[in-house]
Amino acid sequence: MSGEPLLEVKNISTSFFSHLGEIQAVRGVSFYLNRGDVLGIVGESGSGKSVTALSIMGLIEKPGKIKQGEIIFNGEDLMKKSQREMCELRGNEISMIFQDPMTSLNPVYRIENQMVEVIRYHNRNLSRKKAVAQAVEMLRLVKIPEPEKQIKSYPHEFSGGMRQRVMIATALSSNPGLLIADEPTTALDVTIQAQILDLMNDLRARINASIILITHDLGVIAEVCSRIIVMYGGTIMEAGNERDIFYNPQNPYTVGLHQSIPSNLAISEKRLVPIRGTPPNLMYPPKGCPFSPRCSYTMRICLEEAAPTIRLSDTHISVCWLLHENAPKINGYSKGKIVDRYKTPSGS
């Protein structure tokens, strides 16, 4: 898929103005997504990954505000669209599924009503009968057994995994150009998570969906994503393809994440290597690199100035002073060229 990327996010910053002060949840994030790509955004709680997604969806409500930046989707700047235009877009061209499938479904309506409502909202000329038929087809696509019968159920009659399937079916019913999945499997058991990830891989192949998958689990990322962004403290730390992030991580935070989890197949007599300290308070983010208070390689400049974006290859960037040519050489870390983070899309 060549040509224009489907989505371009340019230098967005989103804050929440609470009575305590301004919480700078997202601070200057830029990336892009090509058609048919599955982009993973990985980060811990408070890294800004969900707020980034909500900013794209235009779902930031008071006291939150997108302070700056551009969100170009299909060649149009979403920031310039009215609330009404965004309503048309949401669910039609961009759909989102959330972590908790129980609170995303209305408990007092049958699945049928909820799906038909969405389908007909975005296609008003469709008869109810045809909309029901389409809903049944969507349920079949996400492998709900006996969809004609099951569509009459209420959400509480379904298990967590089934509800998440219904959410995916509803989100895909308008054939959106972009699907944003925010921790879609976090609330599910591992065997059910495996079913849903399997389904997402299957859908990706069958309908060529462009997907942004947000998760805290590097394992989930490894299952489905071709490109990966690592976020921390409201900023992008590193971006690259699967090989870059899993086999050649070039940011001390990414390396720290890898070392914090036990490897699955090795006999794990080895001690884990935790990242010391705690994530930053985004009301008072560190002046320089957000990871500098916890990093093992912190230099003076890390505390004083935001790190530059450094390009390591066509696919790989890292935001870290350690990769600057004036920094000491550390084993495992390469040197690269500084690039303009706002002009150069992160990742491939």
Binding site: V190, Q193, A194, Q195, D198, D217, E223, F246, S263
Partner: peptide, 20 residues
Amino acid sequence: LSAIPIPDPDLTRKNKRTIL
């Protein structure tokens, strides 16, 4: 065991998953 997502894409591809 086969359902655990492994944070290693190469191993993930080799892992023959039993989907229940």
